[in-house]
Amino acid sequence: MWEKMLAYIVTHRAALLVQTGTHLWISLAALAAAVLIGVPCGYLAADSPGMEKWISAPFHVLRVIPSLAILVLLIPIAGTGALPAVIALTILAVPPVLLNTIVGFRDVPPFMTESAAGMGMTDKEILRKVRIPLAMPMIFAGIRTALVEVIASAALAARIGAGGLGEVIFTGLGLNRMDLLLLGGVLVAALSLLCGGLFDAITGILMPYRNLARQQ
């Protein structure tokens, strides 16, 4: 089987590259869209208790719905292909980002903002220098969850004609070829782990204060 796999990689390396690229760009596009939607909405919802209930409730429900259901459900509405996939993936990615943003802002201890106000910082300065930095770890955790979710669902999206590495897996399923299944599975898994690891590294650089222990 290994020989078959290697042979496939060699003969199809161009196609594999394209598939990896597609997989990445639809995932990242959806993630970017989710962040652009989720973070501002989350911030606005966090600041207004009334709005928060209305906004977070539907997203909590959305989170529970199987991703495949959402992907497939969108077909009658948006058709098949890459763009409908990006839309579906965005819908899937917004809940963790939005909900984590809300929690991130709400979790800033009131005495912290009060201390900042007491020192003479304006509202904008407090937002910029205190609330946003303190909410960031939670927001980034939400983005990380969304990232994993999106890459996983992008694999499924191959089934609705979006391209991506899921195609290898589905081809393997259709042709009953174990080598393709293994190849596809490993590639998608590797992509997910790599992106996750990269994201963790970036988070570690941006926010070094998160995991410091007491020095004496």
Partner: peptide, 14 residues
């Protein structure tokens, strides 16, 4: 957990 489910299925099937 961060391995996409389709991928994990695919890896296990052989």
């Amino acid at each position: 957990y961060s391995i996409p489910s389709l991928a994990l299925f695919a890896i296990l099937i052989p």
